[in-house]
């Protein structure tokens, strides 16, 4: 279901407007008729499992791949057939640290500034400003090859901003990064958004999307299955009660019996012998606990959870939320 796909009359043109975007690789439909807009100044999240088409979408939007169909407009101008001409408008942070290991942090940024035709004096000031902003001034003279993964990712974000783009694409910016660095990156992205930079962010971390994004689109197997403001999606989930049970055994063999016996509840198995009970009505815990105990599954702990984007994602896509985080390195702090 597509929501909010068009700007209202009189609104400023969207930072990015995509219509009918499609790409096929051999027998795989990587992107299948994607329609969405990204409004100026917002953080737009593209959320989906590994292989859903997130990276391909970024490649199509930035000119690193050619779409089979569809149109791409930046800030009100159609660039579908001339994406090269739009490349000064955006910065791209790839899903790996793709700077030059032989150059220092400062030299890498100076090189990126030169790629965008920024003069030496201006580049020097901009590079120092970015190094300071991203907390890398102390390591500016070190070779990029010696940077930690988190430092490297921060420098890559700085490199994408060197020409002051109006829109920033980030492909899985916190994947494979340790918890403190991932938090720092999120803090920096929130700062960029507060300064007015439009951000298009792909992620498979639902919590990250919930924390950072104004709006999100869920993409599964190349298709956008839902897009809306995060608040709006959460509003729709607020009537749900969620209780997570920690069992002493795997819950999967008991699922059909639970669903049969408690048909008004939804039962979702989670990793680590956990089981989620979701209902729109008030949940009475004693009957299911007793039911599980009769079948040899003791409940060790029960806790109430706040409805989150995760429930919406699971409901809309039919995918287990953990499929997202398990595929690329687990949950992040």
């Amino acid at each position: 279901m597509i929501e909010e796909s068009q700007p209202g009359p009189g609104e400023t043109p969207p930072a990015l407007a995509v219509s009918g975007l499609a790409k096929r690789f051999d027998d795989v439909q990587a992107v299948d008729g994607a329609d969405f807009i990204v409004r100026p100044g917002e953080v737009f999240g593209f959320l989906g499992p590994n292989g859903a088409g997130k990276t391909t979408t970024i490649k199509l939007l930035t000119g690193l791949a050619r779409p089979d169909a569809g149109s791409i407009a930046y800030f009100g101008a159609d660039f579908t057939r001339r994406l090269k001409a739009a490349q000064h408008l955006f910065g791209v942070v790839a899903d790996g640290n793709n700077l030059y290991p032989e150059l220092t942090g400062r030299e890498n940024l100076e090189f990126c500034a030169a790629l965008y035709g920024i003069g030496r004096a201006e580049a020097r000031n901009r590079v120092e400003e970015l190094l300071e902003r991203f907390g890398l001034d102390y390591a500016a003279g070190r070779r990029f090859g010696g940077y930690s993964r988190g430092m490297g990712r921060r420098l890559c974000i700085a490199a994408a901003l060197v020409h002051r783009p109006r829109l920033l694409f980030l492909d899985e910016p916190t994947t494979g990064i340790d918890v403190p660095n991932a938090r720092e990156i999120r803090r920096m992205l929130a700062g960029l958004a507060a300064d007015g930079t439009t951000i298009f962010l792909t992620t498979h971390y639902i919590e990250e999307a919930e924390r950072l994004c104004d709006r999100v689109a869920f993409i599964v197997a190349g298709r956008i299955v839902r897009q809306a403001a995060v608040e709006k999606l959460l509003d729709g989930a607020r009537d749900r009660r969620i209780i997570e049970l920690q069992l002493d055994t795997a819950p999967e063999p008991l699922l059909s019996a639970l669903s049969e016996h408690f048909p008004t509840n939804r039962w979702e198995p989670r990793a680590g012998k956990r089981l989620r009970l979701i209902s729109t009505a008030e949940i009475e815990l004693a009957p299911p606990v007793a039911f599980l105990a009769e079948r040899g599954a003791a409940v060790l702990e029960a806790r109430r959870l706040r409805p989150s984007l995760e429930e919406v994602f699971v409901e809309v896509t039919g995918l287990a939320a953990e499929r997202l985080s398990a595929e690329k390195g687990g949950r992040r702090g």
Partner: peptide, 13 residues
């Protein structure tokens, strides 16, 4: 290492 993508993304023919 995808550094070539960085060059392809530069506003250079």
């Amino acid at each position: 290492v995808a550094a070539f993508d960085r060059l392809l993304l530069a506003p250079l023919s």
